[in-house]
């Protein structure tokens, strides 16, 4: 970090060694757990406890994947996760866009309303989930797909609203104003003019809502049990078995992280906005 200015003085192609070393170490730190998990997932159980450890299995196997998906109901979890995350994402992006547009263009409710929505993002889930659990049991939403979809929609709304809020504020008003002058209703100005223009922002907001739902554990742990359980909650089955299920756990982890990582890396241009709820433009 001390080399900010001197590096500029040198030729552009020279690379400061200390800096690259730090980056290299950090890259290894990031990749090593992922590699070891992948390695574990294709390793025969006989290779688990050898000294030295097996760095790459001589005979890779897919048995753990099969067991994780079928014997441990990983496939059911995967399907549930897809249904619930996709539905909640669509709802959240839709409602979030509606609200964000109103906040950005009409300043609805002033700062209070937007801050109120933002504050929802910072509520500790434990404070919400206990009463929601009681209410869900009362109205029959406990352990249902719809119950978790509603919960996830609310839980991702602050992110959707704030990302779209920032996006609409960054968009010129002139097109919508022209449409209004031409006799469009406000709805038409919104739906036919603003929404198509904001499509990239909506997609980005939806991607982050999806990742949030896909990786969520706490709500799913408490609000579901044997029917609507999502992929992350399947990992409960692997706790406390002292080694026997390592391969299955690793296999399921690999299956589950592929979609969210793929989406996240594809949408990385919007990452800063996604992480800071639109407060910072990346």
């Amino acid at each position: 970090m001390a080399a900010v200015a001197p590096a500029r003085r040198r030729k552009r192609r020279s690379v400061p060694i200390g800096r690259m070393l730090l980056l290299g170490f950090f890259l290894v730190f990031v990749l090593w757990p992922l590699y070891w998990m992948f390695n574990t997932s294709i390793k025969p159980s006989d290779d688990y406890l050898t000294v030295p450890p097996v760095w790459f299995p001589a005979e890779p196997t897919l048995v753990h994947y099969k067991a994780a998906l079928f014997a441990y109901r990983g496939l059911d979890g995967l399907i549930n996760s897809l249904i619930i995350s996709l539905s909640a994402t669509v709802l959240s992006a839709l409602l979030g866009t509606l609200m964000a547009y109103s906040l950005a263009r009409y300043n609805t409710g002033g700062q209070h309303l937007s801050f109120w929505v933002l504050s929802q993002r910072f509520l500790p889930p434990i404070g919400i989930v206990l009463p929601v659990f009681l209410i869900y049991r009362g109205v029959g939403l406990y352990d249902t797909h719809i119950g978790l979809i509603i919960a996830y929609t609310v839980f991702t709304l602050p992110v959707s609203v704030w990302m779209m809020f920032a996006y609409f504020r960054g968009m010129p008003k002139s097109m919508e104003e022209a449409a209004l002058v031409d006799g469009c209703t406000r709805w038409e100005a919104f739906w036919r003019v603003a929404v198509p223009l904001a499509a990239p922002g909506i997609v980005a907001a939806a991607v982050f809502a999806f990742i949030a739902c896909w990786t969520e554990f706490f709500f799913a742990l408490i609000l579901t049990s044997r029917t609507a359980f999502t992929l992350p909650t399947v990992f409960r089955s692997f706790i406390g078995f002292q080694g026997a299920q390592y391969g299955e756990a690793a296999a399921l982890a690999i299956v589950s992280l592929v979609p969210s990582i793929a989406l996240g890396v594809l949408a990385q241009r919007h990452l800063v906005r996604g992480l800071t709820l639109g407060a910072v433009r990346g």
């Binding site: 757990p33 896909w214 990786t215 969520e216 690793a250 890396v265 990452l271």
Partner: peptide, 23 residues
């Protein structure tokens, strides 16, 4: 490098815990 560095952000904390347990 950028794409690799941001990968942990898209992984469920449950899986992160699982990965470190394995290690």
């Amino acid at each position: 490098v950028m794409s690799i560095l941001i990968v942990p952000l898209f992984i469920s904390p449950v899986i992160v815990g699982q990965a470190w347990t394995l290690l």
